[in-house]
Amino acid sequence: MKVDTYTRKLTRLRKVASHVDAHLGESMCLDELAGIAHMSRFHFERVFNEYSGETPVARVRRLRLALARQRIEAGGVGSLLDLAFDSGYNSAEAFSRAFRAAHGLPPSAVRPQAQTPSPIRIEFLQGQAIQYIPFRGQLGCGITPFDELRAHALIAGIPRERRKGWCVQLSGDMNDSGSEVELQAALQSDKLGQHIPGLEQGQLPDGHYAVLRVSGGFGIPAHADLGARIAAETSWKILPDAPLLRCFHNSAYLPAGFERQFDLYVPVAA
């Protein structure tokens, strides 16, 4: 399969995943999701399962239960029955059984947790070889360069555990879908063990970085807010105009927005 064909397929699957994420509180059927992917129901279910490691129906159930746990931990839940209905279950008993099967404990055993920012650490990053897709333009609502990168790796037969993903943000604001950005969607070369045809070769910029874990999407704090927080917590200062790095930690290829996690590497100087 050609890379552009595979990329379009991955982009369509991501569009389906985004639709599921945005409508978890509503009923969904396979025919509707297959239509979004522009595939037959049978083909869609098979392709989605092969790529994401779960069927579309299993994804909906898993995410509803994961979101239910997050709501309990955030302390904003009313009755168990309301939570069951919101999660697509007709009774509190059925919801509790499914919740225990998914999380290993009943909803009543989950306690609210204080939401605190992840701590910042200072790390010296050695220069590391990467293979990447260059991108310059508006990302819009998609992440096409990363889908293209993954398509190259899949066609080359690189196992999932060897695809360590990075983003080198050279310019622009990735928080603004209408902003022009320049970036490299990258994989770490030493993990790959081979050169992948169609990818350019480069290096992650070495140096000192303030590193913090970001959860719940691709957005990051504004540059001024980042600088103020880093200075307050570490006494280091952001280097202006130096690339920002993101190191992705999701094991799944189609994580929901609230499941996404990455380490943000902000270049700093003492």
Rank of each mutant, 00 (worst) to 15 (best):
P243E: 10
A58K: 10
L192I: 14
Q184L: 09
E45D: 14
P117I: 07
L30R: 07
A66P: 00
E123H: 11
F95Y: 05
A232H: 08
M28R: 14
L154F: 03
L63R: 15
G78E: 12
L254Q: 06
L125E: 09
R246G: 08
E200A: 09
H23F: 01
L226I: 06
Q169T: 07
H19A: 10
P107L: 03
E26V: 02
A153Q: 05
L239H: 05
M174N: 03
A153K: 01
A94C: 02
S40A: 13
R69S: 01
C167S: 13
R62A: 15
E73M: 15
A17H: 06
C29K: 14
A17S: 15
K9N: 06
I220E: 12
V168K: 00
A109H: 11
G76H: 13
A17V: 05
S108C: 02
P106M: 03
L80N: 03
M174V: 11
A22D: 11
F95C: 04
A228F: 01
H208G: 00
Y51P: 00
C247V: 03
H152L: 04
N49Q: 13
Q261A: 06
S27N: 10
C141M: 12
H208N: 12
R61Q: 15
P255S: 08
R12I: 00
A114K: 14
V77R: 05
P221Y: 04
H103K: 03
D176R: 13
H249K: 13
L226Q: 14
L212V: 15
G178W: 00
N250K: 05
R213L: 15
A156C: 01
K9I: 07
D31T: 13
K9S: 07
R150E: 13
